[in-house]
């Protein structure tokens, strides 16, 4: 009768910190404060080259964020459409959505990036960053589509029936009753996808987009300090994903307010 306890498992992405874990030493705290401690130690103990590296990176961090947020926005829109398509009774819409998901999931992200960037770039000239965002969004939209589909399916049919019996049509039911509830089920896997996407934006450094990794590579290739540069880059990625996973787990907690007795 009730499907309310369905949990969508998505293996990729950072683990969302468990809000129930109330101990002093949580995995999140150890990782987060450990990361900050190491960064501070390196900057203070060996300002040359670590301070120089960190001064070189802020532009890249901004680019990484820009690509991430724009891509996730595009992915959410495409994902919602694809997810609705997958559960649609309209045969054309359903097939189109399913095919999109099948095709995109069957091609490595890096290949898709190259394809949209170089192959389509021959036809339409778009700025580098826009091409990167389209490619990332297009790819993650397919994964997001499956998340949306699972989330919508996890809502008990009784909710739909109650809504229809009041006089709401199918799309109003989706908008007022199903999606607001599905959002809560969807949020953890969407959060995981978001963090996975942020990490995958490092792939765009292969195109001419100056994200964190590309900036780091520029620094390293001039200074030959590969070890030091990539250490710092790893630490910065880690710090960003840890902060994001914390934010998401707090948000998830707040959204579940109506499930609390």
């Amino acid at each position: 009768m009730s499907k309310k306890n369905v949990v969508i498992e998505v293996g990729d992405g950072a683990a969302i910190p468990d809000p129930e874990d109330k101990g002093l030493f949580t995995a999140w705290r150890i990782s987060f404060f450990g990361t900050i401690a190491i960064i501070c130690y390196l900057i203070i103990a060996k300002p040359d080259p670590y301070l120089d590296i960190i001064k070189f990176l802020p532009d890249g961090i901004m680019v990484t964020f820009k690509v991430t947020f724009a891509s996730i926005g595009l992915a959410l829109v495409l994902g919602l459409i694809a997810g609705l398509g997958r559960i649609s009774k309209n045969r054309f819409f359903n097939l189109a959505a399913s095919t999109y998901i099948e095709v995109v999931r069957g091609i490595p992200l890096l290949v898709q990036l190259f394809y949209i960037y170089f192959a389509l770039g021959n036809l339409i000239r778009v700025p580098d960053m826009v091409a990167a965002i389209i490619a990332m969004g297009f790819c993650y939209g397919a994964y997001m589509g499956e998340v949306f589909r699972a989330g919508i399916n996890s809502i008990d049919d009784g909710q739909t029936e109650a809504s229809l019996s009041l006089g709401f049509n199918r799309s109003q039911t989706m908008r007022y009753v199903i999606l607001p509830q599905a959002w809560r089920t969807i949020l953890p896997p969407v959060g995981n996808e978001f963090i996975a996407l942020l990490k995958d934006t490092s792939l765009v450094s292969i195109l001419a987009v100056s994200d964190i990794l590309r900036r780091g590579r520029e620094f390293a290739s001039e200074s030959f300090l590969y070890f030091e540069t990539y250490t710092m880059i790893a630490l910065i990625y880690l710090m960003i994903t840890l902060v994001l996973s914390k934010l998401l787990s707090n948000m998830e907690n707040r959204l579940s307010h109506y499930e609390r007795r």
């Binding site: 009768m1 029936e161 109650a162 809504s163 009041l166 509830q181 109506y258």
Partner: peptide, 12 residues
Amino acid sequence: GMVFQSFNLFRH
């Protein structure tokens, strides 16, 4: 109007 066995109140 319809009343269901499992109530089906909007949970959110």
